[in-house]
Amino acid sequence: MNAVAIDKRAVAASFSRAASTYDQVAELQRQVGSNLLARLPDDLQPHSLVDLGCGTGYFTRALNARFERPVLGLDIAEGMLCFARTKGPEHAAWIAADAEALPLRGDSQHLLFSSLALQWCPDLGRALSEARRVLLPGGCMAFNTLVEGTLGELRGAWEQVDGYVHVNRFMPLAQLQVVLAEAGFARWHCEVETHVLHYPQLSALTHELKALGAHNLNAGRPGGLTGRARLRALTAAYETYRQVAGLPATYQVAQIILYK
């Protein structure tokens, strides 16, 4: 993502609206976040930790259970934070915050955890600079993000219909690796997972994206409602991807660990 392509206010508003429906359809999000959590070193015992882009607080609770420590939940979407507060954990603190301008002291955190949040940052390099600033020496940041190739089937189908931007753009892996290499961390590791979900029909996918708050947030998207003729054309184009299991939707997820 870049500053031209994404509007933070639109991101915050979209995810705030999705707070009450997000957990009902977030199976993939729980899976890739659990995979990230499993990548943390077994001997890691952080005394101060943050769930950055905590959303409904699912992984805030998971971090609290694993480390038996209070967790600070940060998110740009006030609606998500309001929902998270109702779920706990009891000792969590919830703060509205921008990953590119963290309201945290330098050298104050042992662990920053962030699952499927930083792809919505206009400037990932700035977010990583902030993360490095607030981490203690020897501290760890674990995050995952979507990269180019995600929802490629939906993008390809729309390209057969019109020239508008209908699908969120994600950073190419090569560009992500450059950003990671230039972020100033002592060492880092990046591994990409491919997840393919299947849907009985296109509407099941589009309804899920809306319920997640992750539908099209890019500049260049069409205004107003999509006409019936374009929807019929999109459905026909997407049907060319159909497999035995259903209509595929591919997600490319980079799982990253960095050490200060």
Rank of each mutant, 00 (worst) to 15 (best):
D98H: 12
L176Y: 07
Q31H: 13
E148R: 14
Q177T: 09
L136V: 11
T206L: 15
Y251H: 04
Q177V: 07
V192T: 14
G53D: 07
C121M: 15
L36N: 02
A142W: 08
K87I: 03
H207R: 14
N64D: 10
G220I: 03
T235F: 00
L81E: 09
R221E: 02
Y241H: 11
T194H: 03
P248L: 13
A77W: 11
P89Y: 11
F185I: 03
L37N: 06
H189M: 09
R61Y: 00
T56D: 14
G184C: 04
G55E: 03
E159V: 08
V147K: 10
I76T: 10
E159Y: 04
E68K: 13
L197E: 15
L247P: 02
Q31Y: 13
L247N: 01
P200K: 09
A186M: 00
F113M: 03
A214Y: 08
N216M: 12
K8C: 12
R69C: 13
L231Y: 07
G184D: 03
C54K: 02
L173F: 04
H215G: 10
E130N: 07
S48G: 14
N168T: 08
R126H: 10
W120K: 12
E27A: 14
M80D: 07
L197G: 10
H110Q: 01
A174T: 09
L63S: 07
R187W: 00
V244I: 12
E239C: 02
W188E: 12
H198E: 11
C121T: 15
T150W: 10
Q252E: 05
T21Q: 15
G79C: 01
M80I: 10
T240F: 04
I95V: 15
L258G: 04
R9W: 05
H215A: 12
G106V: 10
A237W: 06
L234H: 04
G220L: 05
A99D: 05
L81V: 13
L258K: 02
Q119G: 11
A12I: 14
A99R: 02
L258M: 15
I257F: 01
V32M: 05
F67T: 01
A10C: 10
A97L: 13
S114F: 02
